[in-house]
Protein backbone atom coordinates (compact mmCIF):
# COMPACT_ATOMS: atom_id res chain seq x y z
CA UNK A 1 0.00 0.00 0.00
CA UNK A 2 1.21 3.47 -0.78
CA UNK A 3 3.94 4.64 -3.05
CA UNK A 4 7.02 2.46 -2.76
CA UNK A 5 9.25 5.41 -3.54
CA UNK A 6 8.15 7.27 -0.40
CA UNK A 7 9.58 6.61 3.03
CA UNK A 8 7.57 3.96 4.80
CA UNK A 9 6.58 6.17 7.71
CA UNK A 10 5.95 9.33 5.73
CA UNK A 11 2.20 8.96 6.16
CA UNK A 12 2.69 9.01 9.91
CA UNK A 13 4.06 12.54 9.72
CA UNK A 14 1.13 13.82 7.70
CA UNK A 15 -1.72 15.05 9.82
CA UNK A 16 -5.18 13.59 9.53
CA UNK A 17 -6.48 16.96 8.34
CA UNK A 18 -3.97 17.05 5.49
CA UNK A 19 -4.82 13.52 4.39
CA UNK A 20 -8.54 14.17 4.60
CA UNK A 21 -8.19 17.32 2.55
CA UNK A 22 -6.21 15.44 -0.07
CA UNK A 23 -8.79 12.69 -0.25
CA UNK A 24 -11.63 15.20 -0.55
CA UNK A 25 -9.72 16.70 -3.48
CA UNK A 26 -9.83 13.30 -5.18
CA UNK A 27 -6.66 11.53 -4.08
CA UNK A 28 -7.45 7.90 -3.27
CA UNK A 29 -3.80 7.45 -2.35
CA UNK A 30 -4.39 9.83 0.57
CA UNK A 31 -7.18 7.56 1.78
CA UNK A 32 -4.85 4.58 1.64
CA UNK A 33 -2.28 6.44 3.71
CA UNK A 34 -4.98 7.42 6.20
CA UNK A 35 -6.10 3.78 6.54
CA UNK A 36 -2.54 2.61 7.06
CA UNK A 37 -1.84 5.34 9.60
CA UNK A 38 -4.68 4.16 11.84
CA UNK A 39 -4.63 0.49 10.91
CA UNK A 40 -2.80 -0.96 13.91
CA UNK A 41 -4.68 1.14 16.44
CA UNK A 42 -8.12 0.53 15.00
CA UNK A 43 -7.73 -3.11 14.09
CA UNK A 44 -6.09 -3.87 17.43
CA UNK A 45 -9.01 -2.29 19.25
CA UNK A 46 -11.60 -4.19 17.22
CA UNK A 47 -9.94 -7.59 17.39
CA UNK A 48 -9.35 -7.34 21.12
CA UNK A 49 -12.95 -6.25 21.68
CA UNK A 50 -14.48 -8.99 19.58
CA UNK A 51 -11.87 -11.71 20.00
CA UNK A 52 -12.49 -12.76 16.41
CA UNK A 53 -10.31 -11.91 13.44
CA UNK A 54 -13.11 -12.71 11.02
CA UNK A 55 -15.45 -10.29 12.78
CA UNK A 56 -12.65 -7.77 13.15
CA UNK A 57 -12.03 -7.80 9.37
CA UNK A 58 -15.72 -7.14 8.68
CA UNK A 59 -15.99 -4.43 11.28
CA UNK A 60 -12.77 -2.74 10.16
CA UNK A 61 -14.08 -2.60 6.60
CA UNK A 62 -17.48 -1.35 7.74
CA UNK A 63 -15.86 1.42 9.78
CA UNK A 64 -14.04 2.75 6.74
CA UNK A 65 -17.08 2.41 4.47
CA UNK A 66 -18.99 4.63 6.90
CA UNK A 67 -16.07 7.05 7.09
CA UNK A 68 -15.95 7.34 3.29
CA UNK A 69 -19.68 8.00 3.19
CA UNK A 70 -19.53 10.74 5.83
CA UNK A 71 -16.12 12.20 5.12
CA UNK A 72 -17.48 15.25 3.33
CA UNK A 73 -19.23 16.42 6.48
CA UNK A 74 -16.57 15.35 8.98
CA UNK A 75 -15.43 18.23 11.15
CA UNK A 76 -14.29 16.70 14.47
CA UNK A 77 -10.84 17.39 15.75
CA UNK A 78 -9.90 13.87 16.77
CA UNK A 79 -10.09 11.61 13.72
CA UNK A 80 -8.78 8.58 15.59
CA UNK A 81 -11.46 9.08 18.23
CA UNK A 82 -14.09 9.21 15.51
CA UNK A 83 -12.86 5.91 14.06
CA UNK A 84 -13.00 4.23 17.45
CA UNK A 85 -16.45 5.63 18.12
CA UNK A 86 -17.77 4.17 14.86
CA UNK A 87 -16.11 0.84 15.67
CA UNK A 88 -17.58 0.90 19.18
CA UNK A 89 -21.09 1.42 17.81
CA UNK A 90 -20.72 -1.41 15.31
CA UNK A 91 -19.37 -3.78 17.98
CA UNK A 92 -22.26 -2.95 20.32
CA UNK A 93 -24.83 -3.31 17.53
CA UNK A 94 -23.36 -6.67 16.57
CA UNK A 95 -23.51 -7.91 20.14
CA UNK A 96 -27.13 -6.83 20.48
CA UNK A 97 -28.13 -8.53 17.24
CA UNK A 98 -26.73 -11.82 18.44
CA UNK A 99 -28.54 -11.67 21.77
CA UNK A 100 -31.40 -9.21 21.36
CA UNK A 101 -33.32 -10.16 24.48
CA UNK A 102 -30.42 -10.35 26.87
CA UNK A 103 -28.43 -7.50 28.33
CA UNK A 104 -24.86 -7.89 27.22
CA UNK A 105 -23.75 -6.82 30.67
CA UNK A 106 -25.73 -9.47 32.50
CA UNK A 107 -23.35 -11.64 34.44
CA UNK A 108 -23.43 -15.37 34.92
CA UNK A 109 -22.72 -17.09 38.22
CA UNK A 110 -18.97 -16.72 37.77
CA UNK A 111 -19.03 -12.95 37.37
CA UNK A 112 -18.55 -13.01 33.60
CA UNK A 113 -20.82 -10.85 31.52
CA UNK A 114 -22.76 -12.16 28.52
CA UNK A 115 -20.60 -9.93 26.32
CA UNK A 116 -17.62 -12.07 27.19
CA UNK A 117 -19.37 -15.24 26.09
CA UNK A 118 -20.13 -13.67 22.74
CA UNK A 119 -16.47 -13.48 21.92
CA UNK A 120 -15.71 -16.02 19.25
CA UNK A 121 -12.96 -18.53 19.69
CA UNK A 122 -11.05 -17.93 16.50
CA UNK A 123 -8.73 -15.49 18.19
CA UNK A 124 -5.28 -16.95 18.12
CA UNK A 125 -2.73 -15.38 20.45
CA UNK A 126 -0.08 -16.52 17.99
CA UNK A 127 -1.32 -13.72 15.73
CA UNK A 128 0.09 -11.30 18.23
CA UNK A 129 3.10 -9.42 16.97
CA UNK A 130 4.94 -10.08 20.21
CA UNK A 131 3.89 -13.70 20.66
CA UNK A 132 5.96 -14.35 23.74
CA UNK A 133 4.54 -15.82 26.86
CA UNK A 134 4.07 -12.42 28.49
CA UNK A 135 2.27 -11.07 25.46
CA UNK A 136 -0.04 -14.06 25.41
CA UNK A 137 -0.83 -13.67 29.07
CA UNK A 138 -1.57 -10.00 28.70
CA UNK A 139 -3.84 -10.58 25.72
CA UNK A 140 -5.71 -13.31 27.56
CA UNK A 141 -5.94 -11.19 30.69
CA UNK A 142 -7.44 -8.32 28.71
CA UNK A 143 -9.97 -10.66 27.13
CA UNK A 144 -10.99 -11.76 30.59
CA UNK A 145 -11.87 -8.21 31.64
CA UNK A 146 -15.55 -7.18 31.75
CA UNK A 147 -16.52 -5.51 28.50
CA UNK A 148 -16.66 -1.92 29.72
CA UNK A 149 -13.34 -2.14 31.53
CA UNK A 150 -11.75 -3.90 28.56
CA UNK A 151 -13.02 -1.19 26.27
CA UNK A 152 -11.69 1.64 28.42
CA UNK A 153 -8.33 -0.12 28.71
CA UNK A 154 -8.07 -0.70 24.95
CA UNK A 155 -9.21 2.80 24.06
CA UNK A 156 -6.65 4.28 26.42
CA UNK A 157 -3.70 2.00 25.90
CA UNK A 158 -4.12 0.93 22.31
CA UNK A 159 -6.02 3.79 20.68
CA UNK A 160 -4.37 6.41 22.92
CA UNK A 161 -7.63 8.26 23.38
CA UNK A 162 -7.94 10.76 26.23
CA UNK A 163 -10.35 9.84 29.02
CA UNK A 164 -12.60 12.72 28.03
CA UNK A 165 -13.11 11.19 24.57
CA UNK A 166 -13.59 7.72 26.04
CA UNK A 167 -16.27 9.10 28.36
CA UNK A 168 -18.04 10.63 25.36
CA UNK A 169 -17.96 7.36 23.44
CA UNK A 170 -19.17 5.29 26.38
CA UNK A 171 -21.72 7.94 27.30
CA UNK A 172 -20.46 7.94 30.87
CA UNK A 173 -18.92 10.50 33.21
CA UNK A 174 -15.18 10.90 33.25
CA UNK A 175 -15.09 9.67 36.86
CA UNK A 176 -16.85 6.47 35.83
CA UNK A 177 -14.40 5.93 33.01
CA UNK A 178 -11.44 6.54 35.30
CA UNK A 179 -12.87 4.07 37.80
CA UNK A 180 -13.21 1.44 35.07
CA UNK A 181 -9.55 1.97 34.13
CA UNK A 182 -8.53 1.63 37.77
CA UNK A 183 -10.43 -1.66 38.06
CA UNK A 184 -8.90 -2.94 34.79
CA UNK A 185 -5.38 -2.15 35.99
CA UNK A 186 -6.19 -3.63 39.35
CA UNK A 187 -7.10 -6.92 37.65
CA UNK A 188 -4.12 -6.93 35.30
CA UNK A 189 -1.42 -6.09 37.79
CA UNK A 190 -1.62 -9.36 39.79
CA UNK A 191 -1.45 -11.35 36.57
CA UNK A 192 1.71 -9.55 35.63
CA UNK A 193 3.20 -9.29 39.09
CA UNK A 194 6.25 -11.41 38.45
CA UNK A 195 6.95 -9.68 35.22
CA UNK A 196 6.30 -6.35 36.79
CA UNK A 197 8.74 -7.06 39.59
CA UNK A 198 11.33 -8.20 37.08
CA UNK A 199 10.82 -5.16 34.92
CA UNK A 200 10.85 -2.85 37.91
CA UNK A 201 14.18 -4.31 39.02
CA UNK A 202 15.87 -3.55 35.71
Amino acid sequence: MGDGACPVRQYMQETDSELLKEYRSGSVDALERLVEKHRRMLYGYIVNMTGSQTDADDIFQEVWIRVIRKIASYHHRNFGGWLVRIAHNIVIDGARKRKPDVSIDREDGEGRSVAMTLVADDFEPSHLVEAGELGTRIACAVRELPEEQREVFLMRVQADLPFKEIARIQKASINTVLARMQYALGKLRPLLRDDYDALARR
Binding site: Y43, A56, G135, V157, Q158
Partner: peptide, 11 residues
Protein backbone atom coordinates in the same frame (compact mmCIF):
# COMPACT_ATOMS: atom_id res chain seq x y z
CA UNK B 1 3.77 -4.00 27.60
CA UNK B 2 0.07 -4.23 26.80
CA UNK B 3 0.44 -1.90 23.83
CA UNK B 4 3.10 -4.11 22.31
CA UNK B 5 1.35 -7.35 23.22
CA UNK B 6 -2.05 -6.43 21.92
CA UNK B 7 -0.72 -5.30 18.57
CA UNK B 8 -1.88 -7.66 15.82
CA UNK B 9 -1.39 -8.18 12.14
CA UNK B 10 -4.43 -7.37 10.11
CA UNK B 11 -6.79 -6.87 8.52
Amino acid sequence: KARDSLDTDGP
